[in-house]
Structures are given as structure tokens and as C-alpha cells.
Design a protein around this nucleic acid. Structure first.
Lengths: 215, 215
DNA sequence: GCCATTTGTCAACGGTGTTGACATCGTCCA
DNA sequence: TGGACGATGTCAACACCGTTGACAAATGGC
């Protein structure tokens, strides 16, 4: 009987990464947490990268459940917000960014769901594919950008944003007039708010595209 | 006289990273390329991260020169395309993604340029800030996603995309009907094309927003 | 010419992912 | 029932990595 299984390893790995952070997550620490030799993990995953991908997919479980059925925009909007949240909660997903297509179950379900809604809305295959890539790129990219700060407590995050704003305010007003003038407006709201603003504008642009094609 | 300067180190580092790839770029290899002890680099940069950021900013030199003056959309569009290209050409920039605001000269110039164009177009400060974050997030995120494959020669890239498409085609058509049906349409054109499609839709959405506010 | 600061060298620390040889254990079949 | 076999876990080791501290050489100011 196998003491270690991919599921057990992934669970332990998520726990460890939550404790030590993505940057300090190592196979050896995972081995300690499992009370097993670190190299035993290589009996179940070809490499650390493969493990990280599996961890990422675990975080996406249930992400396509009970999505709004009202409109394609509402559905995709909600799905993207959930994907982003999952990415931020499990920074392992950030490594998924690194040039690989969806291969695991939950990732495939996401692709299928988005494509289905887009086709159902009336997009032709080519445009639907482009639109799919567009929303995914914004969602994953945004998560990758925000993942570092997302792990900090919200008070610390607010302090960091305030620091950045004052950095802009301290610039030479001759060279960077707008940056100085608008320093108080930069990094408005939460990173989530900013993402949703971008996503809504992208979806609006896609809707315009659709309206121009439909009868 | 200093044999090593930040400029010399950054130049050598860019050369090395172009040869061995981002993942295999190390301080020791950089030392070899400079015919100097690897640790000498730490006399000029506090850490490897700081060096990477400096490399990134080098790649952004001149990115705001001679931008279109025709309209804010054309200007920002072109600038984002250039930023993405710079990011892909110098994957060091990908590390810049990791939760830091623009601090170097070229990065600051980008921010200033975008904000100036948005304000000039009629966006109020709050919306301009949101729009700035939106286009930057898409641009940097997209580059982060594509950076791994961008370093491969285009023939290899085409082969990889073909592989991914056939992965989708091989899925169970009962569970993933749209993915299978559209497998031939996925990953259309180049990654650049797909980014520009997304960027244009986002800019269109922002333009709609602007039109609804202006008299 | 002396002194202090900067710059380069060297050895070393404490980590990292991964591999190959070896031992153990469960399962299936003769 | 015994034996073979494959899957699983352990161990030592390899080849790296970023970074630090002590020391030496060079540089520039007084």
C-alpha cells in the first residue's frame, strides 16, 4: 500500500507553501512535512514543476460550478474573477503561467466553459478563440502581477501602496507632471477592483465586436 | 579605475541571458563572462533581483520615443506593443512583474506618457489611473505568459502550438465538445496577434467609457 | 606619502532540484 | 505457498545556486 499518493502530496504541499511562502517552498521541506524522504516525491511527480502544476489545478476545483446563466458576459466575468482569486490564493499557479497550455482537468473545464459561452453568444470560432485568449491572458497575467502582494496582510498592502504613491509624488514635477499630479489617484481601490475594471472594459469591447457582426 | 561598472555588468548579463536562457542565468555564469569573480557583481548590485530589474529597464530604453501623435488610442496601443516586445526580448523583465512599481527611469517615463495621453483625451484622474493599470496589467501579464515560448525559434513555436491543438482535439468530445470542435481554431496567429486583439478590445472598451462621460 | 574608501578575490555557508543504487513491500501468478 | 516483479521509500551524492565575510589590491583626496 502506498503511504504517499499524489493527492496526499499535493495537500501537504499546499499546506507547506501556505506556511513558508512560494519562494521558500522546497522539495526538502515538503519531505519533512510528510515525514518522508524528500526524494520519495519523485516517485509520484516527474519534477517539482509537475507538482506545482498539480497544486495549481487543485486550487481550481469547483471554479466552474454554479456560474451565472444570465448572460455570457456575467458568466465569463464571474469565472475570471474566480480564476484570479484561485491564482492569488495558491501562488503555485503563478508558475503555471510559464508557457504551458491547460492540461489538467479543471483547467480544461475552464477552457470548455468559456468557449461554450462565447459560441453560444454568437461568436464565430475564430473570434471566440481570440476572445478566449484575451480574457485568459488578462486574468492570468493580472494574477501573476498581483500574486506577490496578495499574500501580505491587507494593512501591510495598504501601506505599500501608500509608499508607492508617495514615490510618485516625490518625482520631479518638471519631468513627470502627470505622475506627480495624479500620484494620489494611482493604485486606486484594491487590486481586485482594478482587475474587474479592466475585465469589464475588455468584455465591453468584445461585446461591441459581437454586436457589429450579429444581424 | 573600476574595471566593472553597472553598465558593463548589465550589458554582459543581457548577453549571457540571451545565450543560456532566463532559467539558467546565474551570477556565477555572469562572472565567467566578465572574467571576474562572480561575487564582484555584489559590489555594484545589492542582489541578483536588483540586477535583473536594471537589465529590464535597459530593454525599455527609447520605448516612448516617436510615438504616434494621432490619437490617444494609437499612441497607447503602439507603446504597449513596444513594451511587450521589450519584455519578450529581455525576459529579465518578467521578474519585474513580481510586485514592484515602476522605479527606474524608463518605467517612469512609460507611466508618465500613458497618464498624460489619458488625461489629454479627457479621462478624469480616477478613471485615467484605472485605465493605466488596465492596459499595463494586460501588457505585462501577456508578456509574462508568452515569455517562455518567445525565446524559442518560430518553427519550434509553431510545432508546439500544433501539439497543443492536437491535445485539445484528442479530448473526450462528450465532456469537452467545444474544445474538440474548436481545437483547430485555438492559438490562432502569433502570440503577438492575440495580444493586439485583446489590447484593441480593451482600448475600445475604454473609449466607450470615455464617450459616455464626455459631453 | 599616507590614509580611507572603493573594488576585486577567495573560501565558505546553507541551501536547491535531481539522480542512481539499494532495500522494502505488496500483489499476482505458477 | 513460494517466488518473481514492479512499485514505493531511503540514502548518499552530484552539481549547482545566491549570498556573506575576511582579506588584498587599487584608487583618489589631503
Amino acid at each position: 500500500m502506498a503511504r504517499l499518493t499524489p493527492d496526499i502530496i499535493v495537500s501537504a504541499a499546499i499546506e507547506v507553501i501556505g506556511k513558508v511562502g512560494f519562494d521558500h517552498f522546497s522539495v526538502r521541506k515538503l519531505g519533512d512535512a510528510l515525514d518522508a524522504d524528500p526524494t520519495a516525491i519523485y516517485r509520484h511527480f516527474r519534477s517539482k514543476d509537475e507538482l506545482l502544476r498539480a497544486m495549481g489545478d487543485r486550487g481550481l476545483a469547483g471554479v466552474v460550478d454554479d456560474l451565472p446563466t444570465s448572460s455570457w458576459r456575467d458568466c465569463i466575468r464571474e469565472l475570471c474573477i474566480r480564476i484570479r482569486a484561485a491564482n492569488l490564493a495558491h501562488p503555485a499557479l503563478a508558475s503555471l503561467v510559464r508557457g504551458a497550455p491547460p492540461r489538467h482537468d479543471n483547467e480544461l473545464l475552464i477552457t470548455e466553459t468559456i468557449l461554450a459561452r462565447l459560441r453560444g453568444a454568437g461568436f464565430d470560432a475564430e473570434t471566440a478563440a481570440l476572445a478566449y485568449h484575451a480574457v485568459i491572458e488578462l486574468t492570468i497575467g493580472s494574477a501573476a502581477i498581483d500574486s506577490t502582494l496578495a499574500s501580505a496582510p491587507s494593512a501591510a498592502r495598504a501601506r505599500i501602496y501608500a509608499e508607492w504613491r508617495s514615490d510618485y509624488a516625490a518625482l520631479d514635477a518638471e519631468v513627470f507632471p502627470h505622475s506627480v499630479e495624479m500620484s494620489g489617484s494611482l493604485y486606486p481601490g484594491t487590486a481586485d477592483d482594478r482587475f474587474v475594471f479592466a475585465l469589464d472594459r475588455l468584455l465591453a469591447g468584445l461585446a461591441t465586436e459581437l454586436a457589429s457582426v450579429l444581424p
